[in-house]
Design a protein around this nucleic acid. Structure first.
Length: 556
DNA sequence: GTACTGGGCCAC
DNA sequence: AAACGTGGCCCAGTAC
């Protein structure tokens, strides 16, 4: 049963379906009435239909209410509007309208959009019309089951992102401060450099004979390096490492510490950590491939250096799990490559490549596999490609075909139907110019290069996007089972385990210690369920590496 | 002052 | 200045 949640003039209109039509109830977003109403209706296990989870759900969470399922019409619109399987639907052929908001900016502009009748102010009839367009588009698609799964998974992703932000990642400001202080000295005054960084800057200036040099200025630093006789063309780490000069070690040390302080130092802590929790702002569907992005806080780039600051509460544990070699396993499944599926039977897919005699060492296996997924043509990865293609012709055939499609400007699809964007106008112009009779060799070179670039994008899109779909299914199954666990009276008294972190192929659950084993089993079982949900009984194993830890640095 | 870009480096 | 995909974020520098 669907329940519609419209939003008008800042009030929420909750409509249930009755024999005579829709029956609305209007409530204030912050009122206790809302929590009571939603909580009561949730008993019937409905699907909540609303325009934008990130606009509605946070206020429910603040009121202490969670929901099990929803349809996020904005997220689903973006998928169905683009998918090849729904290209002839009314939804895809209508002119662009209010639902065509780029995912990344949608949550950013609610106040601006207020006046313009934006997404956060949607009447019930508009909501219903869009919902029906989406349902018809899916029903008429050649793979309705996959699109139904994809839109459900994307929507539950929206719920999970809001819940994880609400709950927050347990973060010890004390540990974080200790780590920073140990590395760079105590917190400096505003605008000042920490003592260790200041000392390194002094040494760099002396060693380069450049008083007053600001090493943050790339052009100035490059000039100073060249004047000192160091022949580099950039100031990148990998190039500096080649050079022989006493300043190099100091400079690399400086870069590492300066980066840490500016990206995840005390200022970051002030902005993002409150009451012992880091509240990251995830953006589901924020990446073209369907991966999540973040908006501020950099939750997807937490440096390994500071992960010890993620600490479980006393009496609690962190269950940290990642899907081992997820992308190769997803490729094996979506290409139905039985030889590669056999290699997935163990915990270590790369190890299987070695024992099957396809490559000589595990590092080679990894390089070769990532090379196939990313489109490497040169170096070690390029040299190993023939071996891989011989061993796994179906799997490598899928990524090679995806690359050829992209080179021709065609679109490709993930397993569940998310479709890659068309290349931009500039791309087509360059290709057309190269096809003219008077095209110069330079025109043709540029066109070939650009075509190959887009081919690498579409090659990776298929695997990265399908892996993102698997991860959503995995997380959705975990969430459902954790929620069932909370409803169990036997576990009620100890506290509720919660998903608190997601990083592409990795999840973290913060759980009462007494439930850590049960939670671990749930996380493992959910991986098998995600595989079956997406690929049926095709025999790819999705192996999980799992650690029960007190802090995040202990994982892996 | 704001908006934008390029270099660099963090994560997967 | 890279080879080999997706991003975010910070800084410096420039245009307006």
């Amino acid at each position: 049963m669907d329940i519609l949640v419209a939003r008008q003039h800042g009030k929420l209109e909750v409509s249930t379906q009755q024999p005579g039509g829709w029956s609305p109830q209007v409530v204030e977003p912050g009122s206790p009435d809302l929590a009571a109403l939603v909580g009561e209706l949730e008993e019937t296990d409905p699907r909540w239909v609303w325009a934008d989870t990130s606009a509605v759900y946070p206020c429910l969470l603040s009121a202490g209410v969670r929901v099990g399922r929803c349809a996020d019409l904005r997220l689903c619109h973006a998928i169905l509007r683009m998918s090849t399987w729904t290209r002839d639907s009314e939804l895809a052929t209508l002119p662009a309208g209010r639902w065509d908001v780029p995912v990344a900016v949608a949550a950013e502009l609610p106040s601006l959009l207020d006046d313009l009748g934006g997404l956060d102010d949607v009447s019930r009839s508009e909501l219903l019309a869009e919902h029906e367009r989406q349902q018809s588009a899916i029903a008429a698609a050649s793979q309705p089951g996959r699109l139904r799964l994809l839109t459900a998974a994307e929507s539950v992703g929206g719920l999970i992102a809001a819940e994880m932000r609400h709950v927050g990642l347990p973060w010890s400001a004390t540990v974080h401060d200790h780590q920073l202080t140990e590395l760079v000295g105590p917190r400096p005054l505003p605008g000042g450099r920490p003592a260790v960084v200041e000392r390194l800057v002094g040494e760099i200036r002396t060693l380069l004979g450049a008083p007053g040099l600001n090493p943050e200025s790339q052009p100035a630093l490059l000039r100073a390096l060249n004047s000192a006789g160091i022949e580099v063309h950039s100031t990148r780490q990998w190039e500096l490492e080649q050079a022989q000069h006493p300043v190099i070690e100091v400079l690399l040390q400086y870069k590492k510490l300066a980066r840490l302080v500016s990206a995840n130092g005390w200022t970051w802590m002030d902005a993002w950590v409150t009451d012992g929790r880091f509240h990251p702002d995830y953006v589901p569907g924020g990446v073209v491939t369907g991966r999540w992005a973040t908006r501020g806080g950099g939750a997807l780039q937490l440096p390994k250096q500071i992960r010890a600051a993620v600490v479980a509460d006393p009496g609690w544990k962190l269950v940290v799990a990642d899907a081992a070699q997820l992308e190769p396993r997803v490729l094996a499944a979506l290409s139905a490559d039985t030889a590669m599926a056999r290699a997935s039977k163990g915990a270590d897919l790369y190890g299987a490549l070695v024992s099957d005699g396809i490559v000589a060492t595990r590092p080679q296996a990894k390089v070769a596999m990532l090379g196939a997924l990313y489109g490497a043509t040169t170096g070690e990865a390029g040299m190993l490609m023939p071996n891989l293609m011989r061993a796994y012709p179906k799997a490598t055939g899928v990524v090679e075909r995806a690359a050829r499609e992209g080179e021709r400007g065609h679109q490709v699809m993930t397993w569940l139907g998310r479709t890659s964007p068309r290349p931009g106008e500039h791309w087509r112009t360059v290709q057309e110019r190269a096809a003219q009779p008077d095209a110069t060799p330079a025109d043709q070179r540029a066109a070939r290069r650009q075509a190959r670039d887009w081919g690498r994008f579409t090659r990776n899109f298929v695997v990265q996007g399908s892996a993102a779909e698997w991860a959503l299914c995995w997380m959705a199954a975990i969430r459902r089972e954790l929620s069932a666990l909370c409803d169990d009276p036997a576990t009620e008294s100890v506290g509720r385990p919660d998903l608190v972190y997601f990083l592409h192929d990795e999840i973290m659950v913060h759980t009462p210690a007494a439930l850590a084993d049960v939670v671990s089993q749930i996380v493992r079982a959910a991986a098998g369920e995600a595989g079956r949900l997406m690929f049926g009984d095709f025999g790819v194993e999705f192996s999980i590496e799992l650690t029960v830890a007190d802090n995040y640095a202990q994982a892996k």
